[in-house]
Design a binder for these strands. Structure first.
Lengths: 212, 212
DNA sequence: TCTCCAAATTGACCGTCGGTCCACTTACGT
DNA sequence: ACGTAAGTGGACCGACGGTCAATTTGGAGA
């Protein structure tokens, strides 16, 4: 009876992962992380990642299914902290502050993350299964959309959320980053949020959610 | 003497193109056009375009240099009419109307073009030499930026222009188009322009610049 | 501790693609 | 008609993402 419950649990939760498998998974993720950090996205092949992780190419595919799968996993890892703080962290990022302030804080956090992971974001955006469908984007979009709705139910929140998040496409961030002007993006977005949702309190320095 | 002048002219204008070369160039462009229209961008290989155009693969590369070169050319062809109308056509797209109205008209025109050429735009955005650097994007950005500046010199026009044009990324347009909601994008952008630049006159139905 | 099998690992292999190269053909000025 | 610069085509190349069958191995149960 006990046994049955355990098996049930195991079957329902994601399949148990053997020790060596877990070790390799993290080796691969760390290798990919390193390579993506030091080189442009498109220039890193799976075979190279495998070599750097000390495993065979087949293992990478067995574990992550495809190139996009690996990138998705990597990004999910990074965005987890952000999503957690957004759901239940302290204001202004978490619940409690007024929508405009939360939105500003959230955009800042996303900018910070995108800035630290440009190559990754670029790879992600180019990954064939259109970024719009990816879980991470969906979550972000739902959050931004909800904030806009709660402050200005008369606006087309869903669409505006797409537009706001669209301004964080890695191309633009990269372009600004090359000239050390990320804060310019932040302040312009804050201004935009203000004209859309009304004054939202200047978010202080930046909430700084760690993403690694 | 005469001869010298002619040679000069030929050397300065782009190299003369032999009749067969011109014929093939247009055959390739038309074939690419057709294939991109009926299938998703990534799924069309150069070799296939060459076959459809009835030429060898080598000819395509000889003519356009690379995949991106072909796409760029195709897009330049399409955007030529738009740029012409913008520079010297009738208002509100051309000079004469107030900036807000011109901006609305321009955005409408770009949306219309993007809508009619989604696969092409998608291919273009993914083309490795970052779309930001492409001549077409530069031109568009300069125009939008100038309009914003002339209406609101206090804003960060350059950045806002990037953001506005960013909302026309093919992902978003595609997403909306799938649900027949392009006009939703138009009206939200008009609203956004209005809150940024002040009332700009509701642009009527749409200026409709032909792009093919 | 031993047995055993599902899970994991591996790298040779495959098909495709963008791009190159060069021997061959052809348009066109003279 | 001729000479040649421009154009052409397709075999070829290296790289890449992805597959697979043969082999190894972790770890649960006896």
């Amino acid at each position: 009876m006990d046994r049955w419950f355990i098996c049930q649990r195991v079957a329902m939760a994601e399949r148990i992962e053997r020790a060596d498998a877990a070790r390799n998974r993290s080796a691969i993720l760390r290798a990919a992380e390193r390579l993506f950090a030091e080189r442009e996205a498109e220039g890193v092949s799976i075979e190279e990642i495998a070599r750097a992780a000390g495993v065979g190419k087949g293992t990478v595919f067995h574990r992550f299914g495809s190139r996009s799968g690996l990138i998705r996993e990597l990004l999910a890892e990074r965005s987890h902290a952000l999503e957690e703080s957004t759901r239940s962290g302290p204001p202004p990022l978490g619940p409690g502050a007024i929508p405009a302030a939360r939105l500003n804080a959230f955009l800042d956090a996303v900018i910070a993350m995108a800035t630290r992971n440009i190559a990754l974001m670029a790879a992600y955006e180019r990954s064939e299964d259109g970024r719009q469908e990816a879980a991470m984007y969906q979550t972000w979009h739902r959050h931004v959309s909800a904030l806009i709705t709660s402050a200005r139910p008369d606006l087309d929140a869903e669409l505006l959320a797409h537009i706001l998040l669209g301004s964080l496409h890695s191309d633009l961030v990269l372009h600004l980053l090359r000239r050390g002007e990320t804060s310019r993006l932040r302040s312009t977005l804050h201004q935009l949020v203000e004209t859309l949702l009304g004054p939202g309190g200047a978010a202080p320095p930046s909430p700084e959610v760690s993403d690694r």
